[in-house]
Design a protein around this nucleic acid. Structure first.
Lengths: 340, 340
DNA sequence: GTCGGGAACTAGCACGTGCAAGCTGCCGTT
DNA sequence: AACGGCAGCTTGCACGTGCTAGTTCCCGAC
């Protein structure tokens, strides 16, 4: 920290000069370059002096010299980002750090007026929570970004390697396992979430179709004051007994409307949410949900990025437990189907 | 885009070689360097060829050469980040872009295991939504970051230049203007929000004290199932007639509990929230709140950062309208104070 | 003719780093 | 004594850019 006084940056040359060594030696020690013969005494002197002067490698110079920025860019959608996503990011950057990489996140805005960060950070890998549009892909390629996750749709790789598609599948299978065959889907009308709603609905429909169930009856639960009440009414009229909700908030709207209308949850209508919002456990009845293992997802994302950047293979058996069902009262099987 | 085929980066030297010019000329044209005599024809040729080859300046090389990264780092707290904060970021990065700067955001995690970005991006300015801890400040200084907003507490500058402190002040003044003198404060028990709750409460208490009002009666509204109900009861027992809520969710809990207990809002208890969540308008009664002009806040942050980085002064009269009261039914004055 | 002067452009350094290739002793072997 | 080998270091280039200090060339003035 001594050099900090001057305001000038402390370079490796400063360390070398201060010790009467050459810059190369200092570089070898600081990088731990293999195939070099440096005496233990010199190594220690260099490290001590670097610490004393408060040396910090100049990232730009490193990036220039080695041609790679050691950066991974994570593009986060413009959803209401809950704590859990933060956890995912935290975990991912921690895992990347161990490999010498750093994570920068950018929120993708619908307006999209701001210049994307991949233009100026030239990251080695760009990771998106959701697939990129063709426009974005060509833009990235034009900026020299070649490693992109999820990969181009040209390959036959599954479009969603992040385990996010497991949620809707688990919701449907959970209800089916509880004996429900006619299902509803509770959607939100928030336009900002339209893409995600669409995506989750599609996955749910696919799962239902694959299981031989009829298509889910879709209702919006928040486009006007009593939307949820009408939705519940509509579902019961259509003999729907189980509702897959877009997320926990939608699920809560359904549960509240059903209870207020004098129906029993889950006896008349079972409901399962998504995201395992802390509040779901507090409801009466408590609401079943899908818990995403965001920490695990973060590690998985980091592993994917590292494989892309360094070629190191994925650690085995990590991605499977990304989503799990948290069964609570709102889908409890034991409750007899009776009206008060 | 022609050069993109090779996979190699297109440099200014490539453009120069392709035109039979020197690299310096190309540099002058691309940077619009003043004090240089370049013929109009050459300028056009250079620009056209650069575009044709898909030239993109190497950011790391630029940063190395000019010694500045043209980056501004925005440190966002680990709150549940709503859409509105995204809007703020979007607006700020747009404003910075016009000055040639770019915005990178980092979410500050409580665990803090990940290495902070200011170490490796060396941004010219670091902007925080909330003041930095002394530890963070010294860490930044050690990394060569000298321009920090909010500035060090050593100076007597107001600790919150971001206009965020206006919210609690406006809440108290709004209720006082409606004739309420004994006020309550509805806090959340979420430990992750403790710092922010503390901050808003302190500002509210200061405003109340300055206005000659007694201290606000603080109650948590979500630390157990009927916390809000008990809070309402407690407030009414203490002759509280107006409640300042930490945020809109707290406000909603208070309103719901009050209505369920048969009280009138706002006649028996007026409530004002904070953040102007879209749902507040949908409640019955609709809930008054504080609207933060996030777009304006973003522009203000950008202006602050630019002043710090370039010395250009702040555009006048921007920061004043950061927070405004949105008056709705939950604080409506006309409703006579009567019980049914 | 030559000479000043300006328009138009170029040579080349510096930024801080990573690393390939080379250089200097010293020691053991023949 | 000559020599090979090796530990331990150094010299020096390259990365792509911004910019200062030139250089060349042409044209008009004397």
């Amino acid at each position: 920290m001594v050099g900090a006084k001057t305001g000038k940056r402390v370079t490796a040359a400063d360390v070398a000069r201060s010790l009467g060594l050459s810059r190369a030696t200092v570089g070898f020690v600081l990088n731990g370059t293999s195939g070099q013969r440096i005496s233990e005494a010199t190594k220690e002197r260099v490290l001590a002096e670097a610490a004393r002067l408060g040396y910090r490698p100049h990232t730009a110079a490193q990036a220039l010299r080695r041609g790679s920025s050691k950066l991974v860019l994570l593009v986060v959608p413009d959803w209401p980002v809950e704590f859990s996503v933060g956890k995912c990011v935290e975990e991912a950057s921690h895992a990347l750090e161990e490999a010498g990489y750093s994570l920068v996140t950018q929120t993708r805005h619908p307006a999209g007026t701001a210049r994307p960060l991949w233009e100026l950070l030239d990251p080695e890998v760009v990771v998106g929570f959701t697939p990129f549009t063709p426009d974005e892909l060509t833009a990235m390629r034009g900026c020299g970004v070649t490693r992109i996750i999820p990969g181009s749709m040209a390959g036959s790789a599954p479009p969603d390697p992040l385990g996010l598609q497991d949620g809707p599948r688990l919701q449907v299978e959970h209800l089916r396992g509880r004996g429900h065959t006619r299902l509803g889907f509770a959607a939100t009308a928030d336009p900002r979430l339209a893409g995600l709603v669409e995506s989750r609905l599609r996955l749910a429909q696919e799962t239902a179709a694959a299981a031989g169930l009829p298509p889910l009856v879709v209702r919006h639960v928040d486009d006007h004051a009593d939307a949820a009440g009408e939705a519940v009414h509509g579902w019961l009229d259509a003999n729907v007994t189980g509702v897959v909700a877009y997320n926990d908030e939608s699920a809560a709207r359904v549960v509240r409307a059903a209870v207020r209308a004098g129906h029993r949850v889950p006896a008349d209508l079972a409901v399962i949410g998504h995201d395992d919002n802390p509040y779901t456990a507090l409801f009466v009845p408590s609401i079943s949900s899908i818990r995403i293992d965001y920490a695990g997802l973060g590690r998985h994302l980091a592993a994917l990025a590292l494989r892309e950047a360094t070629g190191r293979p994925l650690p085995a058996g990590e991605a499977d437990a990304a989503a799990t069902v948290v069964a609570r009262e709102s889908t409890e099987p034991g409750r007899a189907s009776r009206r008060p």
